[in-house]
């Protein structure tokens, strides 16, 4: 059989190993830098997204507070159906995990909140609506 002599070696191996060493050194340095820059970039995106999400939820909660205050004063201020929808909106808002942006249900709950809010405002015959940027917010979510 044609076997390599024992004292033979791959003359390219030292070169490959050295290249790998340089690559790993660069990778290590880059990774450290990436942790710093990546965290700050992520934080900036989180700041924007968090403010927008918080503002929208706060808007719905504020409207809800007005309606529930009114109902507590005058039961006949709204119809039974509207009162039921208001209670459902309250439950949805309570279920939103405001402090957990990684929760997979946040988008689904937000959509339900928006829908319920529109049902209520339509019943009341008011033009009340959130003036934020739902489309932009959706874009942010898709980017993630």
């Amino acid at each position: 059989m044609d076997q390599k002599p024992k004292d033979d070696f791959d003359f390219l191996e030292p070169s490959v190993l050295l290249d790998e060493t340089h690559y790993q050194t660069g990778f290590k340095n880059g990774y450290s830098e990436g942790l710093v820059s990546g965290k700050e970039e992520g934080r900036q995106v989180g700041l924007k997204n968090g403010f927008q999400v918080g503002e929208e939820l706060g808007f719905y909660q504020g409207c809800l507070d007005v309606w529930t205050s009114l109902v507590s004063i005058d039961q006949d201020a709204f119809s039974a159906r509207v009162r039921k929808n208001i209670e459902q909106l309250a439950a949805l808002l309570r279920s939103y995990p405001l402090s957990n942006p990684e929760d997979e249900q946040v988008q689904d709950i937000m959509e339900k909140i928006r829908l319920k809010f529109r049902v209520i405002t339509a019943s009341l015959g008011t033009k009340l609506e959130y003036q934020g940027r739902p489309t932009s917010s959706k874009q942010d979510v898709e980017d993630l």
């Binding site: 970039e41 700041l47 997204n49 968090g50 403010f51 999400v53 503002e55």
Partner: peptide, 15 residues
């Protein structure tokens, strides 16, 4: 992790 930090800092203010 960075996103969560930023989100936590702003969500209650926006709310």
């Amino acid at each position: 992790e960075g996103f969560n930090v930023g989100f936590g800092q702003s969500v209650h203010v926006g709310y």
